[in-house]
Nucleic acid binder design. Sequence first.
DNA 1: TTGTATCACGAACGAGTGTTCTAGTCAAAT
DNA 2: ATTTGACTAGAACACTCGTTCGTGATACAA
Lengths: 211, 211
Amino acid sequence: MKLSDRQQRMYDFIRDFFQENQYPPTIREIGEAVDISSTSVVNYNLNKLVEAGLIERNKEVSRGIRLSETPGFSLGGLFSRSVPILGHIAAGQPITVFPDERDSADTLDLASDVVGRAQEVYALRVQGDSMIDALVDSGDLVILNYQKTANNGDMVAAWLTDREETTLKYFFLEGNQVRLQPANANYDPIIVPADKVEVQGKVIAIIRQLG
Amino acid sequence: MKLSDRQQRMYDFIRDFFQENQYPPTIREIGEAVDISSTSVVNYNLNKLVEAGLIERNKEVSRGIRLSETPGFSLGGLFSRSVPILGHIAAGQPITVFPDERDSADTLDLASDVVGRAQEVYALRVQGDSMIDALVDSGDLVILNYQKTANNGDMVAAWLTDREETTLKYFFLEGNQVRLQPANANYDPIIVPADKVEVQGKVIAIIRQLG
DNA sequence: TTGTATCACGAACGAGTGTTCTAGTCAAAT
DNA sequence: ATTTGACTAGAACACTCGTTCGTGATACAA
């Protein structure tokens, strides 16, 4: 279905308005924006947009206009997760991370497709190559779900209370010891008593951005 | 500032309502949801939420409530990019991809942080291990920007017109030949005349999701 | 011409909706 | 006991806003 110039302008306005105000415009606001004096004309063309599948309307509801999802754009969840990048994590020379700091201006928006149902999510930038065999490179972003426990084989960020270091490794609980296994033949596993290790989170995704 | 139980329920309702309907609720709808008979009480507590910085209000505008951005949530752009997952791409036994098919129900929502300013973006799921040394595993999602040209060293999806195959490789233009270099010592580079290769897109990001 | 479909205009109706005013409750402070 | 501040209730008002109706212009087909 082809849109008239007017209808196209209306649709553009609705989208822009929605983006700006976070709520849809009223019929009269649309009319004013596209120079239509009559609300019934706006209403008429609004219904055309519905027929065209571009928007949806709720009857008798003020501002009851919704943008349909169109290819290329999604309102998916409408909320993307704003994931704080809390700092760097090592794999080699461990570095302190502060999972409690929420001030960090650095955040990454992720749609829930990537993050999933995870509860408390944060990101760390990897430094070092100790997880290289797990296909995690220096510079990659690892997305973690904050949790204090892990299963064997999970890739976790672990806090070593004795060394006061945090490191990215595979987690294995063996008796009352924890083996933190790097994925790099050049590094040895770290084996410490279970009570000297605090799991900071489990890696749920890895993102690498290329130039 | 601490929220009363009522205010917390109101905020939750507003967020859920907005998520569901794509427009904010009216005062009376809020009141009904949290069992407040008086609109003035809703109005009163709504102003408390404004003071707490959780929402913003527009005076004398129906449904004039906006959610403030709070840590953990972002309305970022409000629109995320809906990236179609067009299929699998090989690295070994190449598989045909159809960059023109937009019907694929499989899409991935990505916030613009990951996608960047890229224009036409699509995703492919990697099959095979020919790029393993580039830390791209079988099962990974590669995000590509659709473009017909590439620079030397770019990781690209390339269409081989003779073989009618698409493959994921590093791109090198050498004279009037193109070398498609795998990142796996077990595979040999593919060298073909430049006019027998069509670049389908350049990899801009790699995403791996773990259990 | 006549009929029909599309689109536009203006006006009015009535329900939707934010605002405001008065009054009341309750706990803590004076 | 009195006052103060925080919160709740109910009602009324006036503007907001979707809907509907009558009218008319234009284009195209019968």
